[in-house]
């Protein structure tokens, strides 16, 4: 009996040494130890060998964390460095194109006074960004206000769907800027015209996604509504709307992406204030660094809008 206990002790020590040993080996060896004492030594040696092997081949948790970190970080860093490299190379080939370093210095200077205001044409980049965002908010907000209920009706009633289909199919592929002259003509001012362009070009994804969502509400849920004899209002608030919400959020995300794409172009043509106008203005003033800064600003804000809405959409997802 004492021999068994000593051997078990020995075994335990070995197993504790190799912390990463798998459970199956532990079970196997402990079971064997209980059953047969004569083979003990051999099994213990075997187990020690096995666990040492696995200790060598399996990295520790810390090591895994470190490799995961590098796996996640190295490719993007590499991509950015390559991008900067190509940019530098191009700016050396074509000296009129500002390189990364001069752009960086210019950006530092620019962002040290983001909200200065000398005249209407000379205000800080912060103001320009804000006025662009404001326009997008107006145009996009109006589009949501009209587009989402419209989508609901199209999805709910076959007649509405057939009625609107030809008009939507024709208007949807029209380039956003094609709407600008019409806006200027009717509204008579640049500001409302820009909002109009955003409205008309960002409304479609919301209409279509909402309609698709509503038309896909499972018949099972509608049967529940029928059996419970729910009112039309209850059907909308308790069944259609929660079911459609994820579809709708996809539409909203696509729409805001389009709105942000369109604003730059619309402001370039329109003038006034805004990041698109500023980009064009800086081009005319030969501040070429600022053009590149504007491109980055547009990209980063677009990304942030997208991320924000993705997070909002996740919050509304029920599964």
């Amino acid at each position: 009996m004492s021999a068994i206990s000593i051997n078990k002790e020995h075994l335990k020590l070995i197993l504790e040494d190799a912390k990463t040993s798998s459970e199956s080996i532990v079970k196997e060896t402990v079971l064997a130890a209980n059953e047969d004492n004569t083979h003990m030594q051999m099994i213990v040696e075997k187990a020690a060998e096995k666990t040492q092997k696995s200790a060598k081949s399996q990295p520790s948790a810390m090591q895994i964390k470190i490799t995961d970190f590098f796996k996640a970080v190295i490719p993007p860093v590499f991509g950015i460095l390559m991008f900067l490299g190509i940019w530098t190379l191009l700016s050396h080939q074509q000296p009129i194109l500002p390189g990364p370093i001069s752009t960086w210095h210019s950006a530092v200077e620019l962002f040290s006074h983001p909200f200065h205001q000398n005249s209407l044409d000379d205000q800080g980049i912060g103001w320009n960004i804000l006025s662009s965002l404001q326009r997008v908010a107006f145009g996009f907000g109006l589009a949501a206000l009209v587009g989402i209920p419209l989508g609901f009706m199209i999805g709910r009633y076959e007649f509405m769907s057939s009625m609107t289909a030809p008009v939507i199919s024709i208007l949807r592929p029209v380039s956003p800027l094609a709407w600008l002259p019409l806006g200027l003509l009717v509204m008579g001012a640049a500001g409302p015209a820009a909002i109009w362009v955003i409205f008309i070009s960002s409304i479609w994804p919301m209409v279509i996604n909402t309609a698709v969502g509503v038309s896909k509400v499972p018949q099972d849920y509608m049967n529940v509504a029928k059996v419970l004899n729910l009112s039309e209002w209850k059907i909308i608030t308790k069944i259609s709307f929660p079911y459609v919400l994820p579809y709708m959020m996809t539409g909203v995300r696509l729409s805001i992406g389009i709105a942000w794409l369109v604003i730059v172009a619309a402001e370039m043509l329109n003038g006034g204030a805004g990041i698109g106008f500023w980009l064009w203005d800086e081009y005319n003033a030969s501040n070429y660094e600022h053009i590149i800064i504007a491109i980055f600003v547009v990209g980063i804000i677009g990304l942030l809008l997208e991320l924000g809405l993705s997070m909002l959409a996740k919050r509304f997802a029920y599964e």
């Binding site: 029928k226 059996v227 029920y318």
Partner: peptide, 17 residues
């Protein structure tokens, strides 16, 4: 359909939200 004839559906048909 009416609530005096309640149905238990095969796939339960609970509203997931």
């Amino acid at each position: 359909p009416g609530p005096e004839r309640a149905v238990v559906f095969q796939n339960h048909s609970l509203l997931p939200w």
